[in-house]
């Protein structure tokens, strides 16, 4: 089993279990999750993301058989292209994580277009986090709307050769994106915040197909068990589909060593 969307690090508004690498690994072990794609949670709020990315690199180096890094880039902040070059050349980045809502930029703004052109040039996987938590329960100092599904669909349409993973979207958001995209072969979604309606995983497979949906936890903000149980207990899809969602699709997308 491969978790396609997790973080290591602390969240400023709530004490989280499994936020630190050792605790996260223990939880993964308990649930039979062999590997996880991880980004640095502090990089949602840091200004200098290179600090968080270097920390992430050190964590992943210590657990190379368990963690797959997703480095965070903020194209709205000065020096992002230098940061990206360092991530590529020194840290070996193959996967970038974007938070357009928390970092307050337009996906189709000039700087992000440059970032996506670089991604296309280097065959980088781009993951876009729609949101991180239910907006209804956000802290009064950080009320951040989800990224617009329409903006994500336009971005995917503009870069059909870039592989995109949409993370932490709700059912309506991810199905809306899927339906609005013309060429879908490079578009993937994960199920961490797809927590309804009933039979949501079967319905996702019905709309998107079983080859583009991945198991993702959004841990440590959410419990792994939600996404895992939602797939494993779904009575309306086959075991072969479940295997794709839990493992096969992630192997194809992330190509872990």
């Amino acid at each position: 089993m491969i978790d396609s969307n997790a973080y290591v690090g602390e969240w400023p508004f709530r004490r989280l279990p499994y936020s630190q690498p050792d605790a996260l690994l223990r939880k993964m072990d308990a649930l039979g999750i062999e590997r996880a794609v991880v980004a640095r949670l502090e990089n949602v709020f840091y200004k200098d993301l290179l600090v968080g990315n270097r920390e992430l690199h050190a964590i992943v180096l210590a657990h190379q058989d368990r963690f797959i890094p997703a480095y965070t880039i903020n194209p709205a902040y000065p020096g992002w292209d230098d940061d990206l070059r360092i991530c590529l050349d020194e840290l070996g980045a193959r996967h970038l994580r974007l938070h357009p809502n928390y970092h307050q930029y337009e996906l189709l703004g000039r700087e992000n277009l440059r970032l996506l052109e670089t991604a296309a040039e280097h065959d980088l996987l781009i993951s876009i986090a729609i949101g991180l938590e239910d907006v209804r329960h956000q802290h009064w100092l950080a009320r951040v709307p989800d990224v617009s599904a329409g903006d994500i669909a336009q971005t995917v349409n503009a870069f059909p050769h870039v592989r995109f993973l949409v993370t932490a979207g709700r059912f309506g958001e991810v199905t809306s994106i899927w339906r609005s995209v013309d060429k879908r072969e490079n578009l993937y979604v994960e199920n961490s915040r797809v927590q309804g309606p009933i039979h949501d995983v079967a319905k996702l497979c019905g709309v998107i197909g079983p080859d583009h949906v991945l198991f993702g936890s959004n841990a440590p903000l959410h419990y792994h068990e939600s996404a895992k149980l939602s797939i494993e207990t779904e009575a309306q899809i086959s075991d072969a589909y479940k295997q794709k969602l839990l493992h096969g699709n992630a192997v194809r997308l992330f190509q872990p060593q």
Partner: peptide, 15 residues
């Protein structure tokens, strides 16, 4: 239910 799925809510306790 039906707006939420059973497994996602059960996981709040099992997790």
């Amino acid at each position: 239910m039906p707006g939420r799925s059973f497994p996602s809510q059960l996981a709040k306790v099992l997790g």
